[in-house]
Simulated assay, not measured.
Amino acid sequence: MKRINIMIVDDQTLMREGLKTIIELEEDMEVVATAENGEEAIRKAEQTQPDLILMDIQMPIMNGIDSLKEIKSKLNDVKILILTTFANDDYIISGLLNGSEGFLLKDMNYDQLISSIRSAYQGQIILPNLIAKKLAKRIAQHEPERPRVFNQDFINDKGIRFSKREKEVIELLVQGFSNKKIADSLFISEGTVKNYISEVYSKIEINDRAQAIIYLNQFMSY
Rank of each mutant, 00 (worst) to 15 (best):
S189Y: 00
I53H: 03
A33W: 03
K164I: 14
S198K: 14
N109S: 10
L172N: 07
L216S: 03
I8L: 06
E70S: 08
D111H: 04
S163L: 04
M1R: 05
K44S: 12
K158Q: 15
T192Y: 06
M220P: 09
I117S: 05
Q112K: 12
V78C: 00
G102W: 09
Q47T: 13
K133G: 05
N129Q: 12
A136C: 09
N76W: 00
D77G: 01
I71D: 02
L113P: 02
L25I: 10
I197L: 13
A33Y: 06
I170E: 04
L54Y: 11
E199A: 14
N88V: 12
L104K: 11
A33C: 08
V149C: 04
Q124N: 14
M55G: 07
K137T: 10
I197W: 02
K167C: 09
I80A: 02
Q211M: 09
I53K: 01
L14R: 09
E30C: 11
R118H: 13
L172F: 04
E143C: 10
Q49G: 05
E40C: 05
Q122C: 06
G18W: 03
L81F: 05
G64S: 04
T13G: 03
L14E: 11
S202T: 05
G123Q: 00
I42D: 09
Q122L: 12
G95W: 12
L54Q: 11
